[in-house]
Amino acid sequence: MKPINRMKTEFLSKSVNESFARVVAASFAAQADPSIDILADIRTAVSEAVTNAIIHGYPDKEGIVVMECILYPDYIEIIIEDFGKGIEDIEKAKLPLYTSRPDLERSGMGFTVMETFMDSLEVESEQGKGTKIRMTKKLVNR
């Protein structure tokens, strides 16, 4: 299916950019006039994916996070990519309540939230090269 619109942005892995990313993604999705609930789900899932990139992709240094949003007639695809540490075991990372950063009081619910709030979730990761999260969400009109 041919996209009807597309945007791409990149930002430093600073935690203050979590709110920037979720607001930008939801604003972009809003042009399809989805319900407020759908926009809220997108904001939450993007926040989780970007936080993951910041905390786990770049635990010891700053790096670049790229966010791409592709709008199709009835759904949106959102890709969040970092070029940092990578995930050693994706299946383990996706387990509810699993966290590699208990020091940050992380709940380990990030991937569970993304999977639940979006319609699809794919994770690609290579150690030392980074992680790419691809999510889609149907945009049913109000």
Binding site: S47, T51, M109
Partner: peptide, 13 residues
């Protein structure tokens, strides 16, 4: 008006 899983960690803590 917004909370993600960081809020879950905050509440559990």
């Amino acid at each position: 008006n917004f909370m993600d899983s960081a809020g879950i960690g905050l509440i559990m803590g």
